[in-house]
Design a protein around this nucleic acid. Structure first.
Lengths: 251, 251
DNA sequence: CGAGCCTTTGACTAATGTCAAAGTATGTGG
DNA sequence: CCACATACTTTGACATTAGTCAAAGGCTCG
C-alpha cells in the first residue's frame, strides 16, 4: 500500500525541471539546462508526519526537497527507529534504493513539505545517454557515502557535547550554503528526533542546549536557535562538520 | 607523496579482468565478459600496515581486494582514527572519492593483500558507453550507502554485546557468501581495530568474546573463532547484520 | 632468549541513560 | 474565547553500561 494516496498534487501536473522556481537551490542546480529540458518531476505536498515512502517499497522515484524538511530512518527488527539523515531544501532522497530497487529507509515529512518526485526509470534512461547527468548522480551518491562516514565518526568518537555542537554547526553551514544567516538556525524536528539522530537521550539533548545557552554560546527559543559564538561552537564540534559545500546531496 | 612507491607489482604488468582467476569472487563477477574484455587492472601486493592511499590523495583508481584484508579509516582533526569498514576479497574500495576526486579515507592492508587497481578514468569512460557497467557502479555505490546505514544503526542503537554479535555474524555471512563455512571465521584485524570499528574499548571487546565463549556460543583462539551456536548469535545481534547477499560492494 | 606488542582480567570511575515530575506550547470542542 | 487534553520540553535524582587504569600473561620476531 502506497502512503501517497492522500498526497496533494498542488500543481496538478508534472512540471519541467527547467521551469522550476527552485532551480537555484536544487540538487540539480549545476546541471546543464538541456539535460533537464524534458525531465518532468511531480511536485507533491506532504504534511507533518506523512510518509514519502516506506522501507521495502519499490523504487519509483528519487525525491528532491523543495521546501520543508524530511527525515529518513531505518527500523530494526526489534522495532526501534534510527534516524539516518535530515533533508532540507535541495537535497536528494532515495539513493539507497538503487542497490536492489527497494528503499532501505522510511522517509517522513517533519513539516509541511514540498517535494519533487523524479521518476527513476526516466532519470536512468537519460543518464545512459548523458555523461554529465551520470557523473552528477555518481557524485551525489559518493557524497552520501562520505557524509555517512562523518556520521560514523560522530557516533563513534564524539561525546554528547561534541555531537550537539556538530549538529548545530551542520545546520548553520546548511543555512549559510543556502544564502541565509549562519547564526540563525531552525530545528524543524523535535528534541526526540535530535536525540534519536545523535544517539542521545532526549534529556541529554535538552541539557546540552541548556548548558550551551548558560555558557553564552546560544540562545534557544523552542525551535529557534541563535548562535552567539560560531567559532567557539565550531571548535567544540571538533573534526568534521559533515557539511562542506560539495556535500549537499545526502542519502 | 604516494605510498605506492614500494608496492610490488608481482604480475609485472597490467592484466585483463577477463582473465582474472578471481572472477568468481570479484565485485565484477556478474558483469558481461565483453564489458571487461579490454579493461586492464593492475594487481598490486601490499604488506601488513602498508597504505593503498591516504585521505586527500587524488582519485586515480578504485581497488578490488583479491586476497587479504583492508581497512578504511577516517582521521579527525584531533587525530583520532575511526575505522569505517573492513574489506575482504571481492570488495570495492574508493567509491567515497568520486564525489570530489579525492579519497575521504585512508586504506591500509591488515595482512599481506593482493589488490586490483582499476583506473578510474578508464572505468568512467566505459561506463559512459555502457549502461550495464553504469548500473553496476551505481548499485555498488548504493550498496555502500545502505551498508553505512546499517553501521549507523549499530553504533546508534546496539550495546556492546549486540555490536560484537553483529560483527561476528557479518563475518560469518561473508564467509558463507564466499562458499566457506559460516561457523569458522578469521579475524585478520587486531582487537584494537575491532574495538575502534565498533566504538568499544579493547577491553570490552575481549570481555565480550570471553563471555560468549563462557556461554558456549563461540570458541576463540587468537584470530580464529568457531561459532558454536549460529542462531543464538544471530538473535543476539538483533536487527540488521549488514551482510545480505546483495551487499558485497562496500565503501 | 629477550623485547615489544597484543591480549586478557580485575578494580574503580565517569558519562550518559532511566525514571519521575513539573512546566509549557498547541490545538480542539464547547 | 476559554478550558481542557495532549504532546513536547525541561529539570532533578539515581542507576547502569562501558571506559579507564593497572598489571599480568602470551605470541612473535629479531
Amino acid at each position: 500500500m502506497s502512503s501517497n494516496s492522500n498526497v496533494v498534487r498542488f500543481f496538478g501536473s508534472r512540471r519541467s525541471c527547467a521551469d522550476c522556481n527552485l532551480r537555484k537551490e536544487c540538487a540539480w542546480r549545476e546541471m546543464d539546462e538541456r539535460l533537464l529540458e524534458g525531465l518532468e518531476a511531480t511536485p507533491e505536498l506532504f504534511r507533518r508526519g506523512e510518509r514519502l515512502f516506506h522501507a521495502g517499497d519499490a523504487l519509483r522515484s528519487l525525491f528532491v526537497v523543495r521546501a520543508g524538511a524530511v527525515k529518513t530512518c531505518m527500523v530494526s527488527s526489534e522495532g526501534d527507529e534510527q534516524i539516518v539523515a535530515f533533508h532540507g531544501p535541495g537535497e536528494l532522497i532515495g539513493l539507497d534504493a538503487v542497490a536492489d530497487g527497494t528503499y532501505a529507509c522510511d522517509a517522513v515529512a517533519l513539516d509541511t513539505s514540498n517535494v519533487c518526485a523524479i521518476p527513476y526509470e526516466e532519470l536512468c534512461a537519460r543518464a545512459v545517454r548523458n555523461a554529465g547527468l551520470q557523473q552528477h548522480l555518481m557524485r551525489a551518491m559518493s557524497c552520501a557515502i562520505k557524509r555517512n562516514g562523518d556520521m560514523v565518526m560522530l557516533l563513534g568518537k564524539k561525546n554528547a557535547e561534541q555531537r550537539m555542537a556538530s549538529f548545530l554547526m551542520a545546520r548553520s553551514d546548511a543555512q549559510r550554503n543556502r544564502g541565509y544567516s549562519a547564526s540563525e538556525v531552525t530545528l524543524p524536528m523535535s528534541r526526540a528526533d535530535i536525540g534519536n539522530y545523535l544517539s542521545l537521550a532526549v534529556e541529554t539533548v535538552c541539557r546540552q542546549l541548556t548548558r550551551m545557552q548558560a555558557d553564552g554560546l546560544l540562545e534557544v527559543h523552542r525551535s529557534m536557535v541563535s548562535i552567539r559564538d560560531l567559532s567557539a561552537l565550531r571548535s567544540l564540534a571538533g573534526g568534521e562538520t559533515g557539511e562542506t559545500p560539495a556535500r549537499r546531496a545526502a542519502l
